[in-house]
């Protein structure tokens, strides 16, 4: 029991080795073929399934003592849905997520409440009926791809971003993506929403991707759809050199959440909450490789620096 709670120290030795990636060439980049091989080698089927299910992943993370976003309720059956009453059980600001959703499908956010009506970030009202209908659609598996017949709706209190971060974005919640192998965080970026991305931290929808220096936690480079920028296009804030608040804690969380879920190679999605600091929202078993283009560095050299033998 206590063994699970014991903190594993961040492997700073391996981290400092990451600093000079002088291996210039095709070999330093991790291609999708190699990534798939790594996943096949280090991520067991059961762990991938666990990571894909937000509820199961959260249980595993919390058992390992990792700070996750809070939970209001998990509705995984129609019986629970019938017992649930939004006006009684929901807080003022919340997020409803499908446990097996992908790419932000089916996520509903409410930022404030007046009586029994909530309001979305855009100001559109959400009546109790709409909310219950959405939960029902989630439970019916309406947002969970084509294979799942039933799903669980995960209701969480709304996360309000750290003021240092929310100052540089016009709206939406920035999130950090840290890729790690076992206990070693390898590469990190922060995804900053823009007005054009509609407040979503999705790189395909023209959100900003900003590479972070692993040692100092400062933004070294920011990119929108392949074009480097220095300032946020909407708020005009300088991005280069911005230091992520609580970077040590982010690294510690990122290094522990892969092993907690059972994944060897994973990408942790971390948000910075105004009260609780860094919180893990999701662990990804198939993290994308676009992060290399954003950080201007190869993942393969960094993995090699941890002692992985590529042959």
């Amino acid at each position: 029991m206590f063994g699970l709670l014991r903190k594993k120290p961040v492997n700073y030795d391996a981290l400092s080795k990451l600093r000079p990636p002088q291996l210039d060439g095709v070999d330093e980049i991790l291609g999708i073929n190699m990534r798939n091989a790594l996943i096949q080698k280090y991520n067991p089927r059961s762990a991938i399934e666990r990571a894909r299910d937000k509820v199961a992943a959260k249980v595993a993370l919390e058992a390992a003592g990792i700070a996750c976003t809070g939970t209001v309720a998990v509705i995984d059956s129609h019986q629970k849905l019938a017992e649930f009453k939004a006006s009684r059980d929901m807080p003022d600001a919340w997020a409803i997520k499908p446990a097996r959703g992908s790419q932000g499908d089916g996520i509903l956010l409410a930022v404030r409440r007046e009586g029994n009506t909530w309001f979305k970030g855009s100001g559109a009202p959400l009546t109790e009926e709409t909310v219950m209908h959405h939960i029902q659609k989630v439970v019916d598996g309406g947002f969970s791809g084509d294979s799942a017949a039933e799903d669980a709706a995960l209701i969480e209190p709304l996360i309000i971003a750290d003021p240092a971060l929310s100052r540089i974005v016009p709206e939406g919640l920035p999130d950090l993506r840290v890729i790690s192998l076992h206990y070693t965080p390898l590469m990190a970026m922060v995804r900053l929403p823009t007005l054009e991305s509609d407040g979503k931290a999705n790189l395909h929808q023209r959100a900003i991707g900003a590479g972070i220096d692993m040692v100092t936690g400062k933004i070294t480079r920011a990119v929108v759809k392949g074009t480097p920028i220095t300032h946020h296009p909407d708020t005009g804030e300088l991005l280069i050199g911005f230091e992520i608040p609580g970077w040590e804690r982010v690294l510690e969380l990122a290094s522990r959440c892969g092993p907690a879920v059972g994944l060897g190679y994973c990408g942790a999605d971390i948000v910075l909450d105004v009260n609780d600091g860094p919180l893990v929202i999701e662990v990804n078993a198939h993290p994308g490789i676009e992060i290399q283009n954003i950080c201007q560095a190869g993942l393969k050299v960094r993995i090699a620096a941890t002692g992985e033998d590529f042959r």
Partner: peptide, 15 residues
């Protein structure tokens, strides 16, 4: 084959 795909050479050439 575990190396880069040809399309990835194009993708990561900016680096």
């Amino acid at each position: 084959y575990r190396g880069l795909r040809l399309s990835e050479i194009h993708r990561f050439a900016p680096i």
